[in-house]
Design a protein around this nucleic acid. Structure first.
Lengths: 297, 297
DNA sequence: AGAATTGCCTGACTAAAGTCAGATAAATGG
DNA sequence: CCATTTATCTGACTTTAGTCAGGCAATTCT
């Protein structure tokens, strides 16, 4: 274990916990135990149901309940019943609670400002830029990819966003109901899979695999949300789809693409796909690729 | 408070504590309370005296003692007396303790690796680079500058490093005992001040101010350690020296510099210094600068 | 040498954090 | 409708973290 990358991550960690431990202390500046302060903060201006709150902070149900009682006694929080499911309860901030939360906000702002204060303008810009980069990439690292039902809300939303983007980018637009595409746009066959990539719960990408025959599959609907591009997500989706194909006993995957999607073609080539001849009558397709899954990745 | 910089710092903070809070948890993976684990880790392979250990972790003396007893009972640590000062005691890891520490190390490594695992090579590089940048600049933000006795160990060390650098950079070298420099190299006058910049305790820069007459001071011995350059530290030192000059009732500061120190000249100009005529007989000086302190900064 | 200081220790205490086993009421499944 | 599950709560605990007051021995100051 002398990977310099790992070393850097650990050094970073040390430096940051040293520094931002102080930022955590802003949670202590108001004479309230950390646990209560965190709760107060996470309840947020709009209120939240207790279950989500517990999950968010990773608390034991008994403990969470007790903390809420304490905040209630202090007049900062009210807990009321959910209209739909009367077992469920919703915590909301009172006027006082909201003011208190804003005070915590101000404390955090002050601490962040102190951090920047000592730096010159150039250094400040550099720091903030680097922080944004770290934040984004840590986000990328916590994207999860999983098989989900193709008819879920999020799946439909992803596919709609995908189609909308195709319509924007193809010369002459794109209509999912026309040009040989129709046959594919229906429900996936028996053992097709639909993958969704999620960032902190939000769907930010998708990809589908459908079976062509006993040994071949087709990859379709690979899409990544514009604001999370450049993070290698499409590579991960592609790899995940290939893994699904292998799991389904396929030895070969194919896909088609349009000439206006240059990044996609680059991705496929880099991932070991070779151009092949037309295998379908999709009128939007200009290039066809295939990859042999039997060779090790 | 809607400074986008502050917002970015806070978003970064959230993202990082969310993600790398998990890295802290590696301290918990071995069924030992966090406090003990931190101690075990900080004692390090070579042992450390208890005073330093306490300071490092910011612990109460009684608490630290108790934690050490617990680790001793577990057979991970031995505490022995210092040879020189028999009040002082030194904590060392036993064989078992060392192994345990390595286990913590491995856990941290694993967690860091998991973080990097999901990313592609490009993203990994970007993340690590950004992390290094953040780490460095957070370091810069925690540099403190303070007046210290001119004859302290660290002050002498800084000045020696400064002279050594001059000797390396000046054409024909530099000898503090010659060429009109001698007169200045003795002890500072009555109300001269010596500033030291420290990064986590380590001296990383210095600067001196001495009085020339009732209203003027001279800035000398501005130096920043090579590994922390580019962080705006010299700017901060210069500002601190000017503040000292104002405090001492000076309305004007002067300084001289050698032609081979181009960055220094750029710094002085940017800070509002104007070139002026020779005011001393320092044979190493090629340029002389002055700044009127009465104009607001 | 005697007084003060330093470095570490123990005992006695408190607050915060967290766990676990039920209890209760509402919702859901057959 | 009854059994089960779900969402939250209460009470009874334990552990961890941390503080404070004093105590003892070694060192330093005068």
């Amino acid at each position: 274990m002398e990977d310099p990358h790992i070393d850097q991550v650990r050094r970073f960690n040390r430096a940051v916990t040293l520094r931002t431990g102080a930022l955590d202390d802003s949670y202590l500046g108001r004479g309230r135990p950390l646990g209560q302060a965190r709760l107060l903060f996470e309840i947020g201006p709009d209120g939240i149901d207790i279950g989500s709150l517990r999950e968010l902070l990773g608390l034991d149900s008994g403990y969470a309940s007790r903390l809420l009682r304490a905040l209630e006694r202090a007049g900062l929080v009210v807990v009321e019943q959910d209209g739909k499911d009367r077992r469920r309860r919703i915590a909301k901030l009172t006027e006082t609670g909201l003011a208190e939360r804003q005070a915590y906000d101000a404390l955090s702002d002050d601490l962040a400002a102190t951090l920047l204060d000592t730096l010159g303008e150039r250094q400040r810009d550099r720091l903030v830029t680097a922080m944004a980069e770290v934040e984004t990439l840590l986000g990328a690292a916590s994207v999860t990819i999983a098989v989900e039902p193709e008819d879920s809300e999020d799946a439909k939303w992803c596919v709609a966003a995908y189609f909308a983007e195709l319509d924007r980018r193809f010369e002459g637009g794109f209509d999912p109901g026309s040009g040989g595409y129709a046959g594919n746009s229906g429900k996936m066959q028996d053992d097709g899979v639909f993958l969704i990539a999620r960032l902190h719960g939000r769907a930010v990408g998708c990809g589908a695999l459908r079976r062509l025959d006993a040994t071949a599959g087709e990859i379709k609907r690979m899409w990544v949300a514009p604001d999370v591009r450049g993070l290698g997500l499409s590579r991960r989706l592609l790899e995940a789809l290939e893994a699904e194909a292998r799991r389904a006993g396929m030895t070969r995957v194919v896909l088609d693409t349009n000439r206006s999607l240059a990044e996609a073609q680059a991705l496929y080539r880099k991932a070991g796909y070779r151009e092949t001849e037309r295998y379908n009558d999709n009128s939007y397709a200009d290039f066809w690729f295939e990859k042999d899954l039997r060779t090790p990745p």
